[in-house]
């Protein structure tokens, strides 16, 4: 068996080797650009501090963008959907059971109805 064989997907194909080569090439280019950069950088000196137009640096916790702020626009745009779907996850055990038994009953009707 050829270990680097191309994966046949029925419609197309995929060979990780080509991707890896591209990866290595991109890595070399990145390394070339990086190595041509500024040599005077020293860790642990004034250089590592962020420069904010001369303003004092805010506290570390304040500059970090917290998770709750991410994708606000997405959930807001789909608020009509989320307003319906989130309450379904009510956390009440009776509802969980009702969904399960309801789907069972629905499929029962469908399968027996089609079968007879």
């Amino acid at each position: 068996m050829d270990p680097i064989a191309t994966l046949e997907t029925g419609f197309g194909y995929w060979n990780p080797l080509a991707w890896l080569i591209a990866f290595v090439v991109a890595g070399i280019i990145a390394w070339v650009i990086w190595s041509a950069g500024e040599k005077g950088y020293r860790k642990g000196t004034e250089q590592v501090k962020p420069f904010l137009s001369g303003n004092a640096e805010p506290a570390k916790g304040d500059v970090h963008l917290r998770a709750g702020n991410l994708y606000w626009g997405f959930t807001e745009a789909l608020s009509g959907y989320y307003e319906r779907i989130v309450p379904l996850h009510s956390g009440i055990l009776n509802d969980y059971l009702l969904w399960y038994l309801g789907v069972t009953a629905l499929l029962l009707v469908a399968v027996i109805g089609m079968g007879i």
Binding site: S90, G91, I92, L93
Partner: peptide
């Protein structure tokens, strides 16, 4: 009561 046992939801 199951109605109040719902700290996990959403």
């Amino acid at each position: 009561n199951a109605q109040y046992m719902r700290k996990l939801r959403g």
